[in-house]
Each structure stands twice: as C-alpha cells, then as structure tokens.
Design a protein around this nucleic acid. Structure first.
Lengths: 153, 153
DNA sequence: CCTGCATTATTCATATATGAATAAAATATT
DNA sequence: AATATTTTATTCATATATGAATAATGCAGG
C-alpha cells in the first residue's frame, strides 16, 4: 500500500518532492525484492545472511538484531524461517548459555552469494540509468531530510 | 529493520546514493508516522480516512483498495481496525449486495482533520529544511529511478 | 429459468515488524 | 552465599502486507 502522504490536495513544490522521494524509494525496494526473489530470498533473509557471511563466524541473535537495527523478537522469527529454509542453524554459545548463536550453512552461503549477484546486477542497471545525474547535488538534497532525528527513547 | 542494501562492501558512488535515497525515505516515513501517532493514527489508517473524507461519501471496500493500491484482504483488516476505533462504519450497498461500503463517522472525520494538521506541520518543517535545495535537479535525479517498471502481472 | 462465469468481501496461511511479558542464565550487591 | 538486577531469547498480542481459497451475489447466454 502506498500509505505515505495521501494526496490531500497540497500543491506545494516540496510536498510533491517528498512524495516523489518516497515513491522512488519504494520502487527501488520493489526491484530489490524482485531481484532477490529469483534466488528464493527476501530482503530480510538476504540481509541476515549477508551479515553472517560478512562476519565470517556465527553471531548471537542479539548481535544480529543490532546489526539489522531491529528488535530481538523479530530476529527470533527471522532465524526460525531461515532455519526452516536450511540456510542457517542455531548453535549454543559455550561462553554464555543465555545466548543463541546463528551460523550460516553451506547452502546459506551459496544462497547469499547468488542473492548478492542479483543485487549487483540491479545496482549495475541503476548505475547506468543514473549516469547523467548530478550525484553531488542529489546527495546534498537528500542530506536536508536527515536533520532533526526526532525524540530519543 | 533496515533491510535494504546491506552493505556488501560496494564502494560505487551510485550504490551509496541508492542507500541514501532509501534511508532518507525511511526517515521521512518514520517522521510521518510519528506525527500521526500524536492523534492516535497510523499511516494506513490516516490514508484510508483521507480517501473517505476526500470522496465525500462512503466507498466500497474494493474502491478503497484501488485507491490505496493494495489487495482487498488488506482493506478488510484495515476497516476492521478502523471500525474498532469507531472511525468508520460498514454499510450495506443497496444497489449491489456483494459490496460492503465504508463510511467515515463524525469522530473519524475529526480525527482525519487532526491528522492532516500534524502532517501539514511536518511538511512545513520539511519545506523550510529544503529551502536551499535545487528542486528541479532533485526531481530530475529521482526520475531516473522511475524507468523500467518491471514485469506486468 | 438455469448454468456457468465474474465479482465481491472474507477467511486463512504466511511474512514482516513492534513491544510487553516471560523464563533462563549471568552478574552485582549485600 | 543469598538475593536482586541485568541480559538473553522466546512467546504472545498486535499491525501491516500479500496471495490463495471460499462464499455470496450478480450477470450473460443458452
């Protein structure tokens, strides 16, 4: 659902800009998910696999949650699904029995590589499409949205 | 979760740009949801209310699904929640007994107005923050992502 | 008029996200 | 050492999203 900024009739230039920005990002995400689906992956699954592959060793579920900036219960479920897919296994932590570690399997590693190839292909295409764009100006424009990080929790 | 483009180590300029774009959009959405939460609303709830208020009359759930570009089962649930909040009521369609209509209540209308005020405030702030930005260049840059709409269903 | 097809909303299964409540284990404090 | 606190993952409730299967109604063609 395009739940962002339902047109209330605002005609301001910057309002349309915000809308375009969000729309472009959603389109990007859609293509990203589409690319990963070729390898039977989703964004979250690929992200978790990538963190594990990058790390080069198993990670505690809490670490993984931090890396993926999400709450722990989310990771519990995500690892459940990854485990069901055979891409990851849970392992005990001998140093701390509270901790559950996630270790990528051989299949998981191959799948991550395959996913990364699809993402690379997408980024190549996007790179070409953006060849004529003034990246500096774009980056500068985006930075103005980054201010005021909101309240702290 | 920041599930998009987990840093695989790509150093290409455009890759970082895509990441920035998605990140900026998510930040925008976060602030949008934050603004609406002041009035006890969420993005989807506000979007549905807005469509109903805009229409000026009740809408069939299918129409609402089209307006919000989502599947019908989604609307069934959303209207369930809006009805539980007392912001919307289901009504029969006398012309077609298959159709269920959603009608905004008095409270729902007030809530939509309150939500719109908060969104307006946010957009004002953003508009000011983007005062120095070359909107033309930004729009042009965004347009390059819009191409290739992918496969049709 | 009946039969088959299309359309409508709902239900169900699933994926993803959050946050509160819980249980188990580690650590700190008395 | 016993107790209290913190940290860990899980479970549960909830919100949002999708898509398949279902049930009810409408409609077209015979």
């Amino acid at each position: 659902m395009n739940k962002i900024f339902p047109n209330i009739g605002s005609e301001r230039e910057t309002d349309r800009l915000m809308f375009s920005l969000v729309h472009a990002a959603h389109e990007l995400e859609r293509r990203y998910e589409e690319a990963l689906s070729i390898e039977g992956l989703t964004g979250p699954k690929f992200a978790a696999l990538s963190k594990l592959v990058q790390a080069g060793h198993s990670l505690g579920l809490g670490e993984l949650a931090d890396e993926l900036t999400c709450v722990r219960s989310n990771i519990t479920q995500l690892v459940d699904r990854l485990e069901a897919d055979g891409l990851v296994v849970r392992a005990v932590d001998h140093a701390d029995r509270r901790t559950v570690r996630a270790a990528v399997t051989e299949i998981g590693m191959q799948r991550q590589i395959a996913g990364a190839k699809q993402v690379e292909k997408l980024l190549d295409a996007l790179s070409k499409a953006c060849s004529g764009v003034d990246l500096e100006a774009f980056e500068r424009a985006l930075s103005c949205l980054q201010v005021e990080q909101g309240v702290d929790r």
